[in-house]
Design a protein around this nucleic acid. Structure first.
Lengths: 252, 252
DNA sequence: CGATGTGAACAGGTTCACAGCA
DNA sequence: TGCTGTGAACCTGTTCACATCG
């Protein structure tokens, strides 16, 4: 990692040859930072709302405000996709929306497989937010014989053993793991064998995957513990205990 | 495992010269970066597993590996809490575990309220991961008359109108919002009125709250879109289409 | 010796402030 | 004129490398 001084990190074609095709004037297509990607999804939702309200143009100030970020950040985020705004005016809602959808790969069909249809998984299967936003769940799996064969929202639950073939057959691009912790790694391996390269993991374990597989983790108890930290911090910061605090030990 | 006498506040005017209180050798207590906090929760879980296995000591290398981070980062993270390791040996599992629990506020009782017992909320209410990790859900709310009055895991669902009083009465420290988007802000206001200062929001909207309230957001469709981005990126990076893809729009 | 704890270099992301264009 | 697009300063967090100590 010893880069000599002066090595331009922003140098042309430094990452894996991006080779931006000769498209028209629009496509500087710089690397697009990770942090930016997750915000693009937020902007996209807000744009959808604006469009429903009949709004045709937004300024960076407005869009940023509605998305909960600062306007300079928004402009920089959008600048990674090229120049899609009009100086002195703002951004065209519809075309920006399309541009973002394209960038996020929503113009390709994404088909999702969900493994683990217990408590949490069952809820995820029926979560309207998915189908509504272009992520139809196309396959469900579980090990429990009592669940295998049943239908949830019109989709039959299959046995986890079928994961590899079914995922391959349906070109599943995204796998969601909502199993108990101990089962997660095994399930993950099956998904990988089925060709799935993106995994959203709800199980509280660290998944081991090949380099070309992307994993994102949603850990509810971590979220709660971070909030608990802030609660505790406030107490100490505020000096004293809050009403009714008797303290006591909590078990793991 | 009681806290040492006079658990000192983290320094009144902390940002500026903290003037480390006279505590004993243990308690440099520097600011603790946000990024570090969420990792502490992960270390804590791993420590729990190690302890169950009877392990009494871990090196930074081992604990880091099991937590999915690099060892230097782990040591730096722990150093914010003071010196809890032994050079040439490692960390004592039990005492580090206790130290982390204290830091994360798990030695205070955290009581959680969940609003929205629909699809997702119902699953969250029964999620074993919560109660098991020191976050018992102590109150449930919904607007749906069909749900109000029913019981879930022994807890009665109340009407959202009761949020302020019930939260205040039960000293709820953390509120979880699992309602449809349009209802979220209203519910949030009620929680705030009930004195709740930490909120975990599952609704796809930006919540407006007073400065002293901490909000964390879990947005499933954003997670999926980020994964979709990586899927798309891989295609373009890999040069061409993946099996079964005919370019342009894909159908099943 | 061996692993911790940490100053210092580094990288990534954010904010500022302003040039440039419709 | 007003708002976008962006270089440059800034800041937070990560990694390195080594002095330090049980």
């Amino acid at each position: 990692m010893s880069l000599p001084p002066g090595t331009p990190a922003t140098g042309p074609g430094d990452a894996s040859a991006v080779a931006a095709p000769p498209a028209d004037g629009e496509r500087p297509s710089r690397p697009v930072p990770e942090a930016t990607v997750s915000r693009l999804a937020v902007y996209l939702r807000v744009l959808g709302e604006l469009r429903e309200q009949g709004v045709e143009t937004v300024s960076s100030e407005e869009l940023a405000g509605a998305s909960g970020v600062n306007s300079a950040k928004l402009r920089k985020d959008l600048s990674y996709l090229g120049s899609y705004g009009v100086r002195g005016v703002g951004y065209d809602v519809s075309s920006l929306q399309e541009r973002l959808q394209a960038e996020l790969g929503l113009d390709h069909r994404q088909s999702v497989a969900l493994v683990g249809v217990g408590n949490l998984g069952h809820a995820l299967a029926g979560y309207a937010g998915f189908a509504g936003r272009g992520f139809p769940v196309s396959a469900l799996f579980d090990v429990d014989p009592a669940l295998v064969g049943t239908e949830i929202d019109g989709i039959v639950v299959r046995h986890v053993g079928e994961i590899p073939e079914v995922c391959a057959a349906h070109d599943v691009t995204i796998g969601m793991i909502a199993t108990p912790g101990p089962a997660a790694q095994g399930v993950c391996d099956l998904l990988v064998r089925g060709g799935v390269q993106s995994i959203l993991n709800f199980a509280p374990v660290l998944l081991q995957v090949p380099d070309d597989v992307e994993v994102r983790k949603v850990d509810l108890s971590v979220e709660l513990q971070v909030l608990a930290f802030h609660v505790a911090r406030r107490h100490t910061a505020a000096g004293v205990a809050l009403p009714g605090e008797t303290n006591g030990s909590v078990v793991s």
